[in-house]
């Protein structure tokens, strides 16, 4: 965990509201793991006041990538940054996905809804290099919500897409696509990131199919490093339900630990 006040933005790609940023930030890149996130200062003044939590899309050598969607004031300011600018990054933060060694040679489902695809590319890369066979599920409202589809396919991953409006791939929710595929395949594990309703549905499917899984959760965060206790979610651990910090104990939690009824609206 370091503060890189001078992370240089080297490349910006965009598709409507979606942005892919590449930073030169050697120290953070060296420590980064899939599923971890950054707290990014988007403004030099106090509007907005807080940093924004953005998950890591990739880390390679000295570079980091983030993939995000403009969702409010903070992400809009971030989206306006230009290549060559220096940006203040704090990271890498949180506990990312834990990669099970016994998954080598097995098929692994990586399910992303909308901007929830962000951490799954880095995860899929790591899974592949450890000998597993990741299958990426990428769901969006419409085909314009799947900007990373081609990139994921050209890097050699099996990518299954779904759109709510049927404009690309499987017509319907990504969770229905996962259910359909589970009739044909027997993955050894599932990783997911996306909106809460999607994850709650996936949790139900995984339980029914006895499929082990880890989910990356979102929350409004104050600090990102455990000081404010603002980002908590209800988690069941050691037989007890309690509020744990998404920033420090997560953002990735095993499926069986997440208590859904107290979910954050965030």
């Amino acid at each position: 965990m370091v503060i890189d006040r001078q992370a240089r933005l080297v490349e910006v790609e965009s598709w409507g509201d979606y942005f892919l940023f590449t930073f030169y930030s050697p120290e953070i890149a060296r420590q980064a793991q899939p599923g971890q996130f950054l707290m990014i200062k988007v403004s030099e003044n106090t509007q907005p006041l807080l940093r924004r939590p953005i998950s890591l899309h990739n880390a390679e050598e000295n570079q980091l990538q983030i993939f995000f969607q403009v969702a409010g004031t903070g992400t809009r300011l971030l989206s306006m940054k230009k290549p060559g600018e220096s940006i203040d990054l704090l990271g890498p933060l949180g506990k990312g996905f834990s990669l099970q060694p016994e998954l080598s040679g097995r098929e692994i489902f990586c399910v992303g809804g909308g901007r929830g695809i962000a951490p799954l590319y880095y995860l899929a890369r790591k899974l592949r290099s450890s000998g597993a066979r990741p299958v990426i599920f990428y769901g969006g409202r419409s085909r314009t919500d799947l900007p990373l589809k081609n990139r994921l396919q050209t890097t050699g991953f099996e990518v299954l897409v779904s759109t709510d409006d049927g404009s690309d791939g499987f017509p319907g929710l990504v969770t229905s696509l996962v259910e359909a595929e589970l009739k044909k395949r027997q993955p050894a594990y599932l990783y997911a990131c996306g909106p809460d309703p999607m994850m709650e549905k996936l949790a139900e499917i995984c339980r029914r199919k006895n499929l082990e899984a880890q989910f990356s959760l979102e929350s409004i965060m104050g600090c990102g490093f455990g000081a404010c206790w603002g980002c908590v979610r209800k988690i069941r651990r050691n037989g007890q339900e309690k509020y744990l910090k998404v920033c420090q104990d997560g953002p990735v939690f095993p499926l069986e630990e997440i208590v859904w009824q107290e979910s954050n609206d965030g």
Binding site: Q47, L49, I220, G222, W229, G230, V232, N264
Partner: peptide, 11 residues
Amino acid sequence: PPRLVETPGGL
């Protein structure tokens, strides 16, 4: 939760 909300110049 939610336990945090940002407002102009504040939290």
